[in-house]
Design a protein around this nucleic acid. Sequence first.
DNA 1: ACAAAAAACTTGTATATACAACCCCAAGTG
DNA 2: CACTTGGGGTTGTATATACAAGTTTTTTGT
Lengths: 233, 233
Amino acid sequence: MAEAKFLIIKQFITRQIESRVWAENAKVPSENELANQFGVSRMTARRALQELTDEGVLTRTQGLGTFVASLKSKSSILEIRNIADEIISRGHQHHCVQIKLEAVKATAPVSIALEVEEGSIIYYSQLIHCENSVPLQLEDRFVNPRLVSDYLAQDFSQTTPHTYLSQMAPLTQAHHTIEAITPEPFQCKLLKLSGLEPCLQITRKTWSVKGVVSYARLTCPGTRYRLDSQLTF
Amino acid sequence: MAEAKFLIIKQFITRQIESRVWAENAKVPSENELANQFGVSRMTARRALQELTDEGVLTRTQGLGTFVASLKSKSSILEIRNIADEIISRGHQHHCVQIKLEAVKATAPVSIALEVEEGSIIYYSQLIHCENSVPLQLEDRFVNPRLVSDYLAQDFSQTTPHTYLSQMAPLTQAHHTIEAITPEPFQCKLLKLSGLEPCLQITRKTWSVKGVVSYARLTCPGTRYRLDSQLTF
DNA sequence: ACAAAAAACTTGTATATACAACCCCAAGTG
DNA sequence: CACTTGGGGTTGTATATACAAGTTTTTTGT
């Protein structure tokens, strides 16, 4: 049950930092110093320092030394899950109602987002995700036809665009914005809303290695949907 | 300029995976096999496998072997930044208007969130974050007095509650929810809103090692504020 | 035939060693 | 003075070796 040596050194270092003995940006003992102090080989001391560096606790620069990383105001992160997974993991039933699936001309804002020429032909899908038959999210999606040529041939009552697209072109990057909006009349109608309730609007732009894959606008009624996230540091 | 040997092996492995030569959960050559194949020592091959494991690309179990990790439907991540940092990084001016800072009795929902007894004394602060003198976020915050005893002695026109709390009790966990709401009259008044515009409401619950530190409700006008995040996989 | 023991293979930890690459500073050089 | 050179300290890469510990397969013993 005796703990590994490099773990003991890691603990020692993190405790020095947490108890403010070693301040931010302070110099940490070198590999050789730690090795002598703890009676281990340099490689073992090195491992402790290296892992803490990978974890963002320390920073190291060759020739200079090892230092306590600046703690920087920890910005939390929120997981944005695929809504289908989310519904299913709640033990509820998910299904899509496909409303539109067609080729359209790119308007100015969409062409900028997709990085294609204004007026060029792109693919557009509109569908509603339902949880136990209640509309939960309206998905308007614009897809780059150069990267996903047979998008229009799909049937999105079976698989969602998101899962289809991630299979076709693995994501390398994503950009999200989240806003609170007052829904447009057509959105109210599709989501069966009275009209006065605010909506969460998530826009999601995704890249693969070859370029912008798709640009989606996800609209969710504020009374029915909520983004949720639990995380540990 | 020649690349390091362990990097070459890492590249080799990731390419096998990306090109679907090695499927999900497939067995990866052992340390010794890779060492022979690439003419390096076992420790070097090991390093490649280890780093890819740390990065979540592979999984390893002692005695069994190394395997391609399941790709799992990539759920994206959104960064929730401290609003003060956010404003400052935009090059704008940030300042707080402290409205309330007092001890109150915990109501039922707050007592549950803070994990204290209903009716017990807790600390409460209410303040507004302004960007260039425009109200951008209303912050209602409830603080556990057992963990942060001198909260009421602070002056939050200088430092924000968030930075003060993270200094006093380093975060170990956080929970967020994001909703779109119609603001209450008192919120409209404080944020100088006309009343009909929807708001983003973020509730943030944070833990330190000793327990629940604080429970905050952040209300932002939908027309002035937007959550934003860019990330690479 | 069944069970226990051993062997073979795997990853995990630890060490000693060598050299490369980089930074800083001081001593020497023009 | 300005510049170069070198030395000492530091992290980075790579190797060979040894043993521990876990899993699977094979062998052995009853």
